[in-house]
Computed example of a mutant assay.
Amino acid sequence: MPASTAPATDWLDDFYNADSDQLWVTADQGSRFAKEIAGDHNPLHDAESSRFCVPGDLLFALIVRRYGLARHFALSFRGMLRAGTRLSFPSQPAQAFTIADENDRDTVEVQYDRPVTTDPAALLVLIEAYVASSGETFPDRLGPLLAEAGVMFNPQRPFLVYDGMALDIQRAPGTDVRVTPADASLAVNGKRADVQFDYRIADGDGALGEASKRMVVSGLRPYDAEAMTAVIAAYHARRAR
């Protein structure tokens, strides 16, 4: 059984649609979540983009809200999820399960080990705290990693996608959860780079656990400081709109 039951109404209700065990996200909902909740201004999350994909952080939020927390909770995304794609959520989650789309294609692989009964209000606080930290990967954390590795993405067609995440907690959280950045690493493999960002999780009672986020950066080319400066300036301008 799920480890917690979400309240009938909460702020996440604005960012998805549901019909029985099926759920879907419109481009407008996904874009607003990325910008308003996660602070993520990746062009792939612009509602009008032909390459639009549903933010991975929104999928994380909806899965955790549906099933609750576990001592070990991990997601692996199987490609980019397009707007309006209906997802089927299993009614009884196992230790490992998948979420499939309307054509029975697996979109998310989930590991859900040792459920933790959690107060619904605390659950939403943890979701929001994690998403807010996760959305701050570019340029503050990713930029220095790219510069150190001597590579960058195509500034005319940036492609940075969320590959997966893991969350490990020791106990149920309180309603004062804090998620703070920890280590970060980048490994170049040809024209792509695999990136991992780590986080520490705590509340008023002390250390609670840790999390990690995996991303893929594609279309790598030699680092160009002038071009990257322009990309970062354009990104900040998008944030200020």
Rank of each mutant, 00 (worst) to 15 (best):
E36T: 15
E48H: 08
V131F: 05
P155C: 05
E102K: 10
A83D: 12
D194Y: 11
N42I: 00
A240C: 00
E148P: 05
S91P: 03
M152G: 00
R65P: 10
S185F: 03
L44F: 12
H236S: 00
F97W: 02
A184V: 12
L123D: 03
R214T: 11
D224W: 03
L81G: 04
M80K: 08
S134C: 08
S76N: 15
F138Y: 11
A187Q: 15
E136V: 04
M165Y: 11
A3K: 08
S88W: 13
V64A: 04
P173N: 13
S88R: 12
I232V: 14
S91K: 09
M80A: 09
W24F: 10
D163H: 13
E102Y: 09
V54N: 10
P90E: 07
D40C: 01
Y16A: 00
R157C: 08
V108K: 07
M228D: 04
F15C: 01
E36A: 04
S212D: 12
F138M: 07
S133C: 08
S76M: 11
V216I: 13
A132E: 09
R157Y: 09
T107I: 08
F73C: 05
L126N: 06
F97V: 10
D163V: 00
A38W: 09
Q92S: 12
T180V: 13
R157A: 13
F197M: 12
V54H: 12
A74N: 06
A61I: 13
V151I: 14
A211K: 05
H72T: 14
Y199V: 13
T98R: 06
A83T: 15
M1H: 10
T26D: 09
P115L: 12
F89R: 01
S88T: 14
L167N: 06
G209F: 12
P43M: 06
F77T: 14
N154K: 08
G135C: 03
P93K: 06
F33G: 00
G219N: 08
R238F: 07
R51A: 15
G206Y: 08
T118I: 03
S212W: 11
D205N: 15
N189K: 14
D13C: 05
D10M: 11
Q95M: 07
Y223M: 02
A237V: 03
R86H: 04
V116A: 00
R171A: 03
Q196I: 09
P90Y: 04
P139R: 01
L44G: 03
D119E: 07
Q22D: 07
L160V: 07
N17S: 10
